[in-house]
């Protein structure tokens, strides 16, 4: 009876997994060992048999149903179409740029506040063309006039 190591060596020999030196040793010992020859033949034939008659199977649902589930997942995880994403990418830069531009316009057009001293001790500050601030120091009142 062979040891487990010897059996596994014979299997590795059949599978072409033995190092060269060990392979030569096994090959040299085979002609005198009928049990080993039987095992080697049996393992080879079993492998040939199961590979030749590999079990097959058919998807148990229709092609349309099978594909529709795959397509749904693909579409759910897929990034936007290239044209759409390119447009979005451009907008992503455009929107903040427009914001910055708007601020720049406001700053550049903002007029230096002008103060007008009224006879009653109040000040009128003109901050731009559409708003006027009236502050009365004596009454402690500030009025914002937006035109």
């Amino acid at each position: 009876m062979k040891s487990t190591e010897q059996l596994l060596d014979l299997q590795a020999y059949v599978d072409g997994e033995l190092p060269e030196e060990r392979r030569r040793q096994v090959e040299a010992a085979l002609p005198a060992d009928l049990n080993a020859q039987e095992l080697v033949t049996g393992l080879r034939q079993l492998g040939t048999l199961i590979r030749a008659y590999e079990p097959t199977a058919t998807v148990p649902v229709t092609r349309e149903f099978y594909w529709s589930q795959i397509r749904r997942q693909i579409e759910a995880e897929q990034p936007k179409a290239p044209a759409a994403s390119a447009a979005l990418g451009w907008l992503r830069w455009l929107i903040p740029a427009m914001g910055v531009a708007a601020v720049a316009v406001v700053v550049s057009t903002q007029q230096t506040p002008r103060e007008i001293t009224l006879a009653g001790g109040g000040d009128v500050t003109v901050v731009d063309v559409s708003s006027t601030v009236f502050r009365s120091e004596s009454d402690g009142v500030t009025v914002h006039w937006i035109q």
Binding site: G42, L49, I50, Y53
Partner: peptide, 25 residues
């Protein structure tokens, strides 16, 4: 492993191909 037989030379001789495939499965 010692209690099991060594693989026989042709364990499925005479079986039809579909039957053989089914049996292997």
């Amino acid at each position: 492993e010692r209690q099991l037989p060594a693989p026989e030379s042709n364990p499925t001789a005479g079986l039809e191909q579909d039957e053989l495939r089914r049996r292997i499965d």
